[in-house]
Design a protein around this nucleic acid. Sequence first.
DNA 1: AAAAAAGTGAGTTGGTTGACCAACTTGTTG
DNA 2: CAACAAGTTGGTCAACCAACTCACTTTTTT
Lengths: 198, 198
Amino acid sequence: MAYVKTEVRSQQFVEAARRVAERDGVAKLTLRSVASEAGASLGILHYTFPSKEELLASLLQDVIDEATFAFRDNAADPKDLAATIRAGLGSFWNGVIQSRDQLQTMQYELTTHALRTEGLRPLAREQYEQYSGLLRSWLVDVLAASARTSQTPVDVVSRVLLAALDGLIIQYLCDPDPVRSVGDLNVIADVTVHMLGA
Amino acid sequence: MAYVKTEVRSQQFVEAARRVAERDGVAKLTLRSVASEAGASLGILHYTFPSKEELLASLLQDVIDEATFAFRDNAADPKDLAATIRAGLGSFWNGVIQSRDQLQTMQYELTTHALRTEGLRPLAREQYEQYSGLLRSWLVDVLAASARTSQTPVDVVSRVLLAALDGLIIQYLCDPDPVRSVGDLNVIADVTVHMLGA
DNA sequence: AAAAAAGTGAGTTGGTTGACCAACTTGTTG
DNA sequence: CAACAAGTTGGTCAACCAACTCACTTTTTT
């Protein structure tokens, strides 16, 4: 095993942990499985992450940091706010459908695990603050592009929108029907426009 | 341990399993912990449920069967559909807030577990069909009371509403702020009325 | 060249887990 | 009431697990 700075090694382990958690589930993530996945010895894992909880905290943080909804790709049309919203949500949903289900499942597993683990609970909160924050800034941009202000507070809209998308993902995981989910998504888009007050 | 029919024993174990899963998390639900919780020996548990998966299937089925949103308590006001919706969702949300968080957390744990377990996956689907079905029939009743028809297909409305509520629950679990959540809920109520086409 | 950092691999401790079984007790039935 | 089915018991099993130690080697830094 090559000699690299702990910082780098740490990142490698986090990536290995992510693969394991995604493939086998958070419940089956053990230090051994992670070490094996990373092709490293158990000793060095323990050297890098003194405890399993610290590894999981880093994994969750990594998942949080990575979250960047692919909204910005679509240029905001100043004239048609509704179309911009629809396009943004559409490209987001494409990402969800294309990413294998296991990634989404892992996120819920991580969240519930964090809720059950005293030391990780703040991260669960941070996770959702990050998500709604991303949606919020997207909405702010979209509104700015069409020189409007929202009727409902943007904070509220972003949280409700996040909630709807979150629930839609769960339903999609339980019954992966692309047609149905896209139909539901369009209604969510309409409803979002309505909240913004069009 | 008294001799009782397997059917009864089975129900006792499911109840014990529910208590354990709720209190300690699905991950910590072991045959031993369930047997101990039920005050029974490990052997009789294994006799009643030949495998852990069968026990979990029964538990999930039990959770599904139990689901009855407390909507019907509020009489539908034929004149004010919006108020009826708001009242219904409000009483539902009261139930969520009053029920210890752990019950909700357990439901997500059960769902993700079912998604990861080949034999249980159909139950995850059934779970969400049941939930959206309950919302659907409530909406149908509410609409009927005010002699209206929905602009958006009721199936779609019930799924989107379910999604929003589901997501709201997760956010509430991660950051239990009653004031914020009730504010968000009211927006969801408005949006629901909008979907129905008022 | 010395010190510090990174990595190794084997081993220990003290557990938990799901599955399984032989023997036993109780209930039921012919 | 004998026989059989149903229910119950305590214990065994092999596998796995997290956490940690330790003596040691290799690499990097100073």
